[in-house]
Computed example of a mutant assay.
Amino acid sequence: MPTVDLNADLGESFGRWTLGDDAALLRIVTSANVACGFHAGDPRTLVTTCRDAVAAGVRIGAQVGYRDLAGFGRRFIDVEPEDLYADVLYQLAALDGIARTVGGEVSYVKPHGALYNAAVEHEAQAEAVVRAVRDYRDTLPVLGLPGSALLRAAEDAGMRPVREAFADRAYTPGGQLVSRREPGAVLHDPQQVADRVLLMVTEQRVVDIDGNPVAVEADSICLHGDSEGAVAMANAVRERLTTAGVSLRSFVT
């Protein structure tokens, strides 16, 4: 029976500003990429999200990002590798400390937004992220785009690279994500998204922005918690996969 992890970006609310329905998504996903306060999330939100993830039996991942609350971490920052190393280490240690107070722990690390995209090709930033994770706990898996500098750096460091595909994002013919600045980059139709995920999981391919098949390899499928209709899409994906005989289980055992 095929098995895949379903993850979502959570813990991104800040103060009185609420983003997404974390409680609903935690009843659907198997892994939660929890913001660490740099791109989104305040301390109370992170405590609540970690506590709810533990109660739901969902694995907690540290979603580390650039220090960019105003831009939601979606703007590239040409940060020095040593500064990025320290920023990632700080975020990871903080979230892991919070998770442990509520009976859980950080089980993996995933960069967020512009840092995620930069780490596809930016060797120095990818290596800084991996070095911070390795120095904190070298048994933590690193989640990223297949073929990225991030996953190569993790493998070179003797760590576990985990390949990720995106349910609600359009792909280029080269297998990368279409920029959010481009029309059609983000998908919203639950049935379309569910169909795409089933194809990813069972046939290791997806239809790109030009309508042609492109290969994808995925151990985990991401749904963005801040997307319009995220809960409906997550439910549709889970139902489509389970109906097809696919088992949903975290990649962290």
Rank of each mutant, 00 (worst) to 15 (best):
R131K: 15
R131P: 00
A132P: 12
A132I: 03
A132E: 04
V133G: 00
V133L: 04
R134N: 09
R134Y: 15
R134M: 09
R134S: 14
D135S: 12
Y136V: 06
Y136R: 09
Y136D: 02
Y136K: 08
R137G: 13
R137K: 06
R137Q: 13
D138P: 05
D138F: 05
T139N: 06
T139M: 01
T139H: 12
L140F: 03
L140N: 13
L140Y: 06
L140M: 10
L140Q: 02
P141H: 05
P141S: 01
P141D: 04
V142G: 04
V142T: 14
V142M: 01
V142D: 02
V142E: 00
V142S: 00
G144K: 07
G144C: 10
G144E: 04
G144S: 14
L145T: 04
L145W: 02
L145R: 10
L145H: 05
L145Q: 15
P146L: 13
P146T: 04
P146M: 03
P146N: 09
P146C: 12
P146W: 01
P146R: 06
G147L: 00
S148V: 07
S148I: 01
S148M: 13
S148K: 14
A149H: 07
A149F: 05
A149R: 05
A149G: 14
L150G: 03
L150P: 11
L150N: 06
L151N: 07
L151D: 08
A153G: 03
A153S: 15
A153T: 14
A153Q: 10
A154G: 04
E155T: 10
D156H: 06
D156G: 07
D156M: 03
A157F: 01
A157W: 05
A157T: 04
A157R: 07
A157L: 02
A157I: 12
G158S: 09
G158D: 12
M159L: 13
M159T: 03
M159F: 14
M159A: 02
R160W: 05
R160G: 11
R160E: 11
R160M: 13
R160H: 03
R160K: 12
P161G: 14
P161E: 12
P161H: 09
P161S: 13
V162G: 15
V162M: 09
V162H: 11
V162N: 06
V162I: 15
R163W: 11
R163K: 11
R163A: 15
R163V: 11
E164S: 13
E164M: 08
A165Q: 04
A165C: 01
A165P: 08
F166P: 06
F166N: 10
D168Y: 08
D168A: 07
D168I: 01
D168C: 07
R169M: 09
R169E: 02
R169I: 00
R169P: 06
A170F: 03
A170K: 00
A170Q: 09
A170H: 00
